[in-house]
């Protein structure tokens, strides 16, 4: 089948898609966007988290056909998405989204396999809740497994992004 949807603001068309393919598979293997990760492919680890019409979802659990006509944001489009949300002003000199820069600065990245999903989930939480408590952060990110960091630096990163956001830096 053919699937048409928007990915990171650009219309995409995928041909010869087998009906059993997930959105994650189409993103990774057909559209050349392997940033969303394939750690469990059963909706437990959150490494494949993308936004589907704004809602964070495990793209491994979304059939490719369900994305027809909808808007998807992946980690590859996160910086651009954050820039547009901020009214088009570049958020960081680096060109990264504030949450991406905070993950780097806080040492929240080790092997990095959980990072794309965590970034998408954390960015969405800060959009909804700009001043989260620690318990709020933990609840919002509880669907994203990380095996390297023990989560402490991830907590630091989200706190840092929230603080920078509230200070307007």
């Amino acid at each position: 089948m053919r699937v048409n949807f928007t990915v990171n603001g650009r219309p995409q068309e995928a041909d010869d898609v087998w009906e059993g393919e997930s959105l994650l598979y189409v993103l990774r293997e057909r559209l050349g966007l392997p940033g969303s990760k394939n750690a469990c492919e059963q909706g437990e680890c959150g490494s494949c988290t993308v936004r589907l019409d704004g809602v964070p979802v495990c793209s491994c659990l979304v059939a490719a056909g369900q994305a027809e006509g909808r808007e998807v944001v992946t980690v590859e489009g996160l910086a651009e998405y954050a820039r547009e949300r901020a009214g088009g002003t570049p958020a960081q000199d680096s060109g990264l989204a504030p949450i991406q820069q905070a993950f780097l600065d806080a040492g929240a990245v080790q092997c990095g396999f959980c990072t794309p999903g965590l970034l998408v989930a954390a960015d969405e939480m800060l959009e909804r809740n700009p001043t989260p408590s620690d318990a709020d952060i933990r609840e919002a990110l509880s669907g994203n497994l990380c095996r390297c960091t023990g989560y402490e630096k991830i907590m630091d990163a989200v706190r840092l992004a929230a603080a920078r956001q509230s200070e307007g830096v």
């Binding site: 966007l33 392997p34 940033g35 969303s36 992946t74 980690v75 590859e76 996160l78 910086a79 680096s94 990264l96 991406q100 820069q101 993950f103 780097l104 990245v109 990095g112 990072t115 794309p116 970034l119």
Partner: peptide, 9 residues
């Protein structure tokens, strides 16, 4: 490798 890891590249 941090920037590559946060951009998905």
């Amino acid at each position: 490798d941090g920037t590559l890891k946060v951009t998905g590249e």
